[in-house]
């Protein structure tokens, strides 16, 4: 495996490209199936244009071409790194997104931090503590996973910001304004992570090695943190790709509820206005993030678990 890593990365990168290509293609087709005139999208809602101007736009953007040709032209531009112009803002798409990436990343990282801390603490404290505690914690986890995010966000706003006036209501004004959105975004992720880590811990604690460790006179907390957590981290790490996806989709809601700038809000605006180039860029960004994170996880897992490091060959030979 040691010598095979570059080849493995190459193979996986090609597969990742295929995934990105597939998702943008699906998004391209879907946007055209929605219907509506792209010319209106370019013109915007308020402008009443002459037929001559409409013709000009159709020619300039190539809307009169068959869909396949439009797709080909768009893909060709994409390969040269040209993401096109936003119909609405009449700005290059990268510039539209560049300002928005920062706030969204900030929000997502804060949410990941909150989710990981809450999930690990819950799992480490609650794993294998008997049926009653297990049932209560499991119910809380289920609630966290299933509560609608916009509802939770609004509830948090009305209580914490309006009634208690503890935190700012909206916008992007430093750390204080990040707290509620980050917590709201973290809730379902924390619920799922806690479920996975707790199940992993309980499985690890039932293994013979856990009995061996206890028989050495080691504290229960040390057994959990030093031994079992590492075993439980593997399934949680494999969820990293899913986590990134759910953070991005959650950001759309959270940024809207809390009136924060960010990619999620740009996406909402772009979809409603049929601003195809912007939507396509966001789709591509999400697909790329998703595949890159999954690739990193697959490279990271053998570093964490020595048993996977020695590769497939040994396991086959042993069998």
């Amino acid at each position: 495996m040691r010598s095979g890593v570059p080849r493995y990365v190459l193979r996986r990168s090609i597969a990742a490209l295929a995934v990105v290509w597939g998702s943008v293609t699906v998004a391209f087709v879907a946007l055209h199936l929605i219907g509506g005139s792209p010319v209106d999208a370019v013109l915007g809602p308020t402008v009443s244009a002459t037929p001559g101007l409409r013709q000009q736009i159709i020619r300039a953007y190539g809307f009169d071409q068959p869909l396949v040709v439009q797709y080909g032209v768009w893909l060709g531009k994409l390969l040269t790194g040209d993401l096109g112009y936003s119909y609405q803002l009449n700005e290059p798409v990268p510039r539209v997104l560049a300002d928005q990436l920062g706030p969204t990343c900030q929000l997502a990282l804060a949410a990941v931090g909150v989710a990981v801390v809450v999930a690990l603490a819950t799992a480490l404290l609650a794993a294998g503590r008997g049926r009653v505690i297990g049932a209560v914690v499991s119910a809380v986890e289920m609630a966290a996973v299933s509560v609608p995010q916009f509802w939770f966000g609004l509830l948090a706003l009305s209580v914490v910001s309006f009634r208690w006036r503890l935190l700012p209501i909206a916008g992007d004004q430093g750390v204080a304004s990040l707290v509620l959105p980050a917590v709201t975004l973290a809730v379902p992720v924390a619920g799922t992570l806690a479920q996975v880590v707790r199940a992993g811990l309980e499985e690890a604690l039932a293994q013979p090695f856990a009995l061996t460790v206890r028989a050495r006179g080691v504290r229960e907390s040390v057994l959990r943190v030093r031994h079992a957590l590492r075993h439980a981290a593997l399934p949680a790490l494999n969820l990293a790709g899913w986590t990134a996806g759910s953070l991005l989709s959650g950001a759309v809601l959270v940024e809207t509820v809390f009136a924060r700038p960010g990619v999620g809000r740009v996406l909402i605006t772009a979809v409603t206005a049929q601003d195809t180039p912007v939507v396509m860029a966001v789709v591509m960004l999400s697909a790329t993030t998703f595949t890159v994170i999954n690739l990193l996880v697959d490279l990271l897992v053998p570093l964490l678990d020595p048993r996977l490091r020695d590769g497939r060959a040994t396991r086959e030979a042993r069998a």
Partner: peptide, 28 residues
């Protein structure tokens, strides 16, 4: 209680189980 037992385990009474492949922590 747990604290007294922890002092005994490993120090006064050692316990060794059947299959070392699963009785040792495979990640360490």
């Amino acid at each position: 209680g747990p604290r007294s037992w922890r002092r005994i385990r490993g120090r006064q009474i050692g316990l060794v189980l059947q299959d070392a492949l699963v009785s040792l922590d495979g990640m360490r």
